[in-house]
Amino acid sequence: MKKFFSANRGSLFTLLVLILMPFIVGLFDGASPATVFVNGSGQAKFIEGLAIEIFILAVYAISFDLIFGITGLLSFGHSMFFAVGAYLTGIAIKSFGYSLLPTLGLIFVGAVVQALLFALVLPRVKGITFALVTLGLGSVFHILVMSSEMGKYTGSDVGLQGVIVPDFISPANERLRFYFVMLVVMILVYLIYQRFVNSPTGRVCVAIRENEGRARMLGYNTFYFKLAALTLSSLTAALAGFFHTLYQPIVSPNVAGMGFTVTALLIILIGGVGTLNGAFVGAVMYRLLDYGLRRYIGESASFINGAIYVLFVLFIPYGIVGTWRLRSFEIKQGWERLLKLFGQ
């Protein structure tokens, strides 16, 4: 037990901070924990909203990290995974009046089906060609969502709106509950991913990234391992899309576009490609940067976003978490030296 605590000090501390955060922010704002608990309006509610968006982005980014960072498949159609979840949820609730659990079942079926669709092209094309084919599949879905024929269901280029969210989880009145649900979902996803990557299956996925020919030579049928990673990734991304639809008033068709795949790429690049908790760090950095820049600079925010992206690629290629892991020894030494300096 003691060993468990000392090994996971950082994660447990982060978890504690995340649990207490709404109340602490409320205290700074002058609202008592009771007010925060009944979702009184104020700074705490706003921060909860921002955090929910970050959690959704983190779940989406971690799903991209699994197929790009761990398995080494570059897919440019990843936003489709997210958008299928988001749109299926919206259509099922709005047009067919499903309740939440059947909707969840439906998007799981949808996610598995689209993973199989991507798997159809897997054995035929590799590398750049795989990226192009997935880009093609993704843009066909984007065009489908935008087309006027589907407008009755998807709202074409305006976006899907008017999804009625059940009261017990409504983001307007029960935001604190939504916050904790999303936090739990994110942690569960992270634990499952951690388990997957450390399992024998996940090890083979890493081997496929490093050298597919060698993994094949060792007797693994790499197709099944790629399919497993793809399915898990698709399920997770669709789950993120599910919560996106519940949280946002409008599902914009942009989430099906190429730009949203680039967002995932940017997030895991900031956090560190192939490090699972990098997705969370990256999502925090990305969302806060985006929010801050848009607030203080305005329209040209994406210029600075692009510049940060380029600087990261050139100078911090392993991302924040990756660099931390590489340098952790040096950082620890420097820290101790600093402590000694003050101690004397």
Partner: peptide
């Protein structure tokens, strides 16, 4: 390189 050119296109 691929990611760099993506960033360049946004810039």
């Amino acid at each position: 390189q691929l990611m760099l050119t993506l960033g360049m296109s946004a810039i």
